[in-house]
Design a binder for these strands. Structure first.
Lengths: 342, 342
DNA sequence: CTGAAAGCGCTTACAG
DNA sequence: CTGAAAGCGCTTACAG
């Protein structure tokens, strides 16, 4: 047996075949249909594969199989802060799961002026078989285009414009907020107000609905005056929270549609010389770094699970059509929703 | 991956050749060595390429050229919060620049128990030609292994263990902190203290050195008592900042090694019923979301530039050996370092 | 300047 | 169960 030099050219299927005294097709069979190979041959070939450190060349497989075993994931320099890095986390989890499906993830960044062109290009080059979408929005051109060209895809986030499409996984924000309300009531707060975004955003409206449902389930009624809204801006959120606190009585709590809004609520509480948690409960949404740093209780999206589901959906047989999935978030409880120190 | 058949089979080089009435080699020449093709032929072929929407098949090119035109980038589910998402940003910028080099980025997540195995595997499969490393640390096995196997790579972050290697780009944290000190002195603060990490981390020590240099340049001397250290923990940082403020006089400022430490400093300031900015200056490091939300001045790493440099270095000729590059960060000035409201 | 030939490394019917 | 043949889509010397 020849000793392989340090920087040797990769071993190919032919090298393995020669070493194991079989044809290269048999090596391929060992790799792809081991049940069709005699046990003794199988073992001999596998030993040589291990010994030579052979790994099939991805390009050759892709070319022959007419399949890349890769999915594309769009990353976005402008938008990637919008969701508090949830999407960065999602990409990581997508990548973690990929090997389980003998696949990999290709990141790409479209020109903002022609997003579809990037999808078209990467698809035409055969670099990916399909896509995982994220950050879907109203009038998003991507799902329609992919649909029309019969490109396999799954979306992390509901497909707002195409309610008939079921190829998505999302997080049930409504249930998360509902759970936060229940938690706050349980913790002893007597009223629960809501600090949300201005009406009209599907995600924000969904979270607001969760608050209303939570109140209802807890037997509390909303006087209609215990909510305020603000854009994603700290000063605006602080002012809104101050107005809200002015109307809520003693021992109240505020559930917020985002951690940033919650940060405004914390400020408002302190501006009144009150102590978050002890005097006023506050819960945020997304459990970002900000939340952890500020000891803010927050609703956490199950990102890793969403990534797993996305893969499963993408690889599932096309019929029966996969069902959309709504995952339930969890609540990370920290100081700002503990009414009394233990 | 189960793939539904694509609606239209892609156009191949042969389709273009037939349409343009040339051989397929000529089409290839149009693509790869246009100078070797007669102008009239060139134009005719290019017209057909456009008309058919032809894009070369990546796998076929990779197989033939023995080059993938891709770099691997390791993403890490545990470590990706350590640097305040700087690495997520870096991946995005790497991806943005990739098309300029006719390349793409393959993300991968190693098994934490055998990181090298993931590098070996992805390399053996021919999926990438090289790697961009990040989050390098002392006793990092990756640079040595890559070096030994003559795998092209560039590191975002100094190669602490291999000072002879020049294939890295990093951010000059020392210069950033020095600039922050100068800014604070300029803004009218009379003393500048430092809140850092415990001695021993190369990055932290570098930032501390920047503070000392900044004091020196400003003609201030450090009494040796105007620094404190804390781990990345809000409560610990708050306590350290309180001790520090207790020793600093009126009109002081604090430069911090991270935004989280700075958050502790902000808390300490408020605990003393003082107002950040007006009474005590505070500057953080990394300009994270937390900084933006808290109106915290902070040192910002030029991540996009680092990504550009990384690509250039990776593709640069191997001789002369590329020079390591240290980029200068910028200071994002917000409320916490403005002494008086305008 | 253009085209015929060889081949990158693999997989998949198919014949033996 | 095993191997000879064809071919995935491209590029690159090379001959004309």
């Amino acid at each position: 047996m020849t000793v392989r030099p340090m920087r040797s050219p990769r071993a190919t299927i032919v090298d393995v075949a020669d070493a194991a005294q079989v044809s290269r097709q048999t090596v391929s069979n060992v790799l792809n249909r081991p049940d069709k190979v005699a046990p003794a041959t199988l073992e001999r070939v596998q030993r040589e594969i291990l010994r030579l450190g052979f790994t099939p060349h991805a390009s050759a497989q892709q070319l022959r199989r007419k399949r890349s075993s890769a999915v594309g994931f769009e990353v976005n320099p402008l938008g990637h802060r919008r969701m508090g890095h949830i999407l960065d986390e999602f990409l990581v989890e997508l990548t973690v799961v990929a090997p389980r499906h003998a696949s990999h993830v290709v990141a790409f960044a479209p020109d903002p002026d022609d997003v579809i062109a990037a999808y078209r290009q990467i698809l035409a080059s055969g670099l990916v078989d399909g896509f995982v979408l994220a950050d879907t929005r109203h009038t998003d051109p991507r799902p329609g285009w992919l649909m029309e060209h019969e490109v396999p895809f799954v979306s992390f986030g509901r497909l707002w414009d195409l309610p008939e499409l079921q190829c998505w996984v999302d997080v049930d924000g409504r249930a998360g907020v509902r759970a936060a309300v229940a938690h706050l009531v349980e913790a002893g707060y007597e009223q629960v107000g809501f600090l949300g975004w201005p009406a009209g955003s599907p995600v924000g409206d969904d979270r607001r609905a969760g608050w209303a449902e939570g109140l209802h389930e807890a037997g509390l009624t909303s006087p209609g005056s215990d909510e305020e809204s603000s854009n994603q801006d700290l000063d605006e959120a602080t002012a809104a929270a101050e107005r809200l606190l002015g109307r809520l009585g003693q021992g109240a709590a505020i559930v917020c549609a985002s951690d940033l809004l919650a940060l405004g609520a914390l400020r408002a509480v302190r501006n009144l010389d009150l102590e978050p948690g002890r005097d006023v409960g506050v819960v945020g949404f997304d459990d970002t770094e900000v939340a952890a740093a500020m000891q803010l209780s927050s609703v956490r999206q199950p990102v890793a699970e969403a990534a797993r589901v996305a893969w499963d959906m993408l690889l599932a047989p096309t019929s029966p059509e996969p069902q959309a999935q709504l995952l339930t978030p969890t609540l990370t409880v920290r100081r700002t929703s503990i009414r009394r120190a233990p």
